[in-house]
Design a protein around this nucleic acid. Sequence first.
DNA 1: GCCGTTTTCGGCCCGACTGTTTTCAGTCG
Length: 579
Amino acid sequence: MTNLELSWALEEMGDLLEIKGEEPFKVRAYHRAARALETLEEEAAKLYARGELEKIPGVGKNLAKKIAELLETGRSTFLEKLREEVPPGLRDMLSIPGLGAKSIRTIYQHLKITTLEELEQAARERKIRTLPGLGSKTELAILRGIDMLKESRDKVPLGVARPLAELFCRQLRSLPGVDRVEVAGSVRRGCPMVGDVDILVGISSGGDEALLEVIEHHPQVKEVIEKEENHLSLRTWTGVKLEIFVVTSEKFAAGWWYLTGSAAHREELRAYAREAGFSLDEAGLPSSLEEAPVDLSSEEELYSRLSLPFIAPELREGKGEVKAAQEGRLPRLVTLEDIKGDLHCHTRYSDGLHTIREMVEAARARGYKYLAITEHSRSLAVARGLTPEELQAQKEEIARLNEELSDFTVLAGVEVDILPDGRLDYEDEILAQMDLVIASIHSGFRQDEEQMMARLEAALRHPYVDILGHPTGRMLGRRPAYAVNLEKLLELAAETGTILEINASPDRLDLDEVAARRAKEYGIPLAINTDAHDAGRLEDMEYGLAVARRAWLEPEDIINTWELDRLLKRLKRNRHLKF
DNA sequence: GCCGTTTTCGGCCCGACTGTTTTCAGTCG
């Protein structure tokens, strides 16, 4: 049994114990051990063979025994007993924001509901509000939560799908007879949530079954869903559906275009081609992977045969990109090479993992010219928000570091909380001394639109707030956006000159592409920030870029593509200064 | 449940917000 499977088993035990009403610290012990197993470098089976299971942090005598049983028999009597006591369907309900173990127990005891479907029906029939301790707000939260879960059902975040796709591509490339391997589909288009991962393999001679067999037995593969001569459909242990297609190399270019999609883009392009008098065969537009023509050298050629410039995969959504290409209005999309710095990250001062120096070194290694350190403010106690004194100390450390560095600038920033009443979590005098201020909402998510907008408006009108962080507060598949009126927010940002963030963390991607494109129409500058809590996560910039590119944004629209002095001049706080 | 002793028991992150009820329990970050 793999570490991941062990981790899932412990996770499920923890969840079921929680619903059962076990004491929170016991529940946490299971969850902590599950996380430890998930991130464990070595296979637990090897540790077990050496009698060293208890060396795993968070694993003691009891859990070691349960893990040992799982490793030996592939089953757990404890888990099976728990499943008998607690209907496993209740677990899904834990993912509904605002609904916890106690409420789930109440619902189960009174209504005998065990699945999300039954729960949704009960909520629609207004039965939840009749239960003790539950009311109409909880009922609404349930309906909203189930809606959100439905949207992300059978989908994984790009942050999971893309690394997995790249892993399989690397391994496929190393196989004999393979000329070329590329990611296609929604991963290539940079979609924030992905249903399946499409990979195209180009081989020198037809139908190599041995090739697909190797992949079938890859350790990441849990099951084979479907197997044909030139197509393999798999599910990985992490629940991702993988579609691998094999074509001969001369069909690769057309096949790659076809498989990248989207269906809407293919249709838009076909319609254009028909109208412009091209025959589709001549143009090389396949209507299936099998029909991919053999005489196409690249996607660029496909577009140029239609007298069009290359259309980047992120734009291929059938949202006017073909017409724009025809009229020469395609954007010059922002790329990683354009990015000169990151304006939102955390260090050990608050809830980050690394020191300022370590973060700065990582940013320099990426070729950046500047990095803003932006810790949490006092009220966010769980994230060890900084006191004014700690903030001052950090500012001094940053100043010392800047003296050392000749080719790089560290900005002393802060991510200040917008409190539920609209005030900011630091005094103005403190904010005035910072190089850069991000304001974000981390509490009071359930306020109604009026309260929320009043709060956001107060922050945007604040003279020292430069950037609004993760503007809608959504967490992909986990938490819906708070009650924000987007149009009003954009109007306010435009009016007050406040920069809006595209938070690049793959858990957030907030603003999303629709809002970001609207922001551009308003002339609002955007910042793509990773919000990195460790040095490695600075790499999340690529996910923010995917959003920006899908939003048709150009380097000019993104302030962290600008040189530092230009960026600083643009900040609200500096507009009165002369440089 | 685990862990580290103050070594076999007590602390473990804990305060704030929300909804429900009417003084507090449940949930969350």
